[in-house]
Nucleic acid binder design. Structure first.
Lengths: 217, 217
DNA sequence: AAGTGGTCTAGACCACACC
DNA sequence: GTGTGGTCTAGACCACTTC
C-alpha cells in the first residue's frame, strides 16, 4: 500500500511475483498471497494467473453499505423505534410484478403497508409484497408485534437480493404519511429478495426528508 | 451455508469449532477457517475467540456499491461522455469547511463547478473543493481536457474517504443546470477524500432525475 | 512449455475472552 | 487457566493464460 501511495509502483505497473515479495519481506508466500488478495479485493490491484499482478489503472472504489433491520437503524441513532401496520391484504400480482419476478397471475401475494417511526416521528414508509408460495408460514405470524422486515430476516437467513437507491418526489399520500410537504425529495430504497431462485419479497422504503446513508471507503 | 439456509443451524446457535468441522469435512483447519471467515464477512456468522462461532442473530446485510469514475459510469450505459467546466476559482475555506476538515482559514482551495453529460444530456452536477496544500500539482493540469475527478483518481491512488447518499430538492440554479423542474428530487452523493489524514477533496454530486444506484447482496 | 496466481495441508504459536 | 479463533509457515499441487 505504501508503494502504491508513494507511486513507487505506478498505475499499470507490473509488481514482483508473490515468491519474490515473500523473499523480500521474509515471510511465506501464503502471507503475501493474502495481502495481495486483500488489496485486489479493495480494487487497488488487478491479478491474473501467468500475467502477474498490476497496480489497477482504474481503481473502482468499492464502498460497503450496511443495510440493517430498520429497528436497529433507528436505535443506533439513539431513538425509540415503533411502527404502525397501516394496511394489509392478500392480492394477485400486477402485470408489472408478474413480469419482474416471473410470477404466475394466480400467485398469492401478501401486501403490507407500514410506517416506521423514530421517537414517534415518521422515519420511513414501507410498501411490501410477500410471495406466499415461498413463505406461507408468515400468515401465522403476528405482524403487529414483530415487523415483517424482522420476521423475514429471522426466518429466511439465506437469501440474495438486489438493491436500487434513488430519489423521488413525495406523492400526496406519502407526504401525508411521512408528515412532509408534497414534492419533498425522498430517499428511496427498492429491494427484492430471493431464496434459491424463488422471489420472496419486494420492498420499497421511502425515507423521511433528512435521511442520509453513510459509508466509508 | 446450506445448514444455515435449511435452519439446521438456527440463528443464535453455536456451531462446532473449527477443528471439529475440519474433521467432519476431512480438510485442514485453515480451510475451515477461510470458509467461516468468508461467511462472517458477509454477515452470516458472528465469531469471537473463546466464545466460538454463532449463526448471526441480526444479519446485517452488507451491500457493496462500486463508485466508478463518472465517465466510466456513463460509458457503461452506452452513452457518450462529455463535461463542461462551468467555473473555477481559488478561494479560502468557508467556516463550515474549516470546521469539517480542520483547515486553517488561510488555506488555499480550488473550487470547481462541473456539469457531466451523457449524450449531451445533463447527467450530474458536481461541486468540488480541492485542498491545494495536499495536491498543488493540480494547478498545472489541464482540467478542461481531463476532469478533476479523473486527474485525482489517477494521481492519488491511495486514499480513504467517506460517502453520504441522500435526496434533495433541486434549487433554481440546479434545475437550470440539470434541465429539470425546480424542486425535482435529486439523488445526491457527498464524498470527502483523505490521504494520510490530510483532506484532499470534497465533492457533492447531484444526479439528474431518473438516476438509480444499483447493487446486489 | 512455463510461469503465474489459487488453493490446500499439517503444524505451530499467539491473543483474547471467558471461566 | 483454558479453549477458541487469528495468523503464520513450509511445502505441495493445480489451473489458467500467456508465450
Amino acid at each position: 500500500m505504501r508503494r502504491i501511495g508513494d507511486r513507487v509502483w505506478q498505475p499499470g505497473d507490473l509488481i514482483p511475483a508473490e515468491i519474490e515479495l515473500a523473499e523480500e519481506f521474509g515471510c511465506a508466500r501464503a502471507t503475501v498471497n493474502r495481502a495481495l488478495q486483500s488489496l485486489a479485493d479493495s480494487g487497488l490491484l488487478d491479478r491474473r494467473r501467468k500475467a502477474g499482478t498490476r497496480v489497477a489503472l482504474n481503481p473502482v472504489r468499492k464502498a460497503t453499505v450496511e443495510i440493517p433491520v430498520i429497528r436497529k437503524d433507528v436505535e443506533s441513532r439513539s431513538k425509540a423505534y415503533s411502527f404502525d401496520l397501516l394496511d394489509r391484504k392478500q392480492l394477485s400480482p400486477s402485470v408489472l410484478l408478474q413480469k419482474q419476478y416471473g410470477l404466475s397471475k394466480s400467485a398469492h401475494l401478501l401486501g403490507l403497508w407500514t410506517l416506521h417511526r423514530s421517537d414517534t416521528m415518521p422515519f420511513a414508509y414501507e410498501e411490501r409484497w410477500i410471495n406466499l408460495s415461498a413463505v406461507p408460514e408468515i400468515l401465522e405470524a403476528d405482524l403487529e408485534t414483530l415487523s415483517a422486515n424482522e420476521w423475514l430476516v429471522n426466518n429466511t437467513p439465506l437469501s440474495h437480493g438486489e438493491f436500487a437507491f434513488s430519489a423521488r418526489n413525495a406523492s400526496i399520500a406519502e407526504s401525508r404519511i411521512l408528515n412532509c410537504p408534497q414534492g419533498a425529495a425522498l430517499f428511496v430504497a427498492d429491494r427484492s429478495t430471493w431464496v434459491a431462485d424463488q422471489p420472496v419479497t419486494a420492498v420499497r422504503l421511502a425515507y423521511a426528508p433528512g435521511f442520509t446513508m453513510n459509508t466509508t471507503v
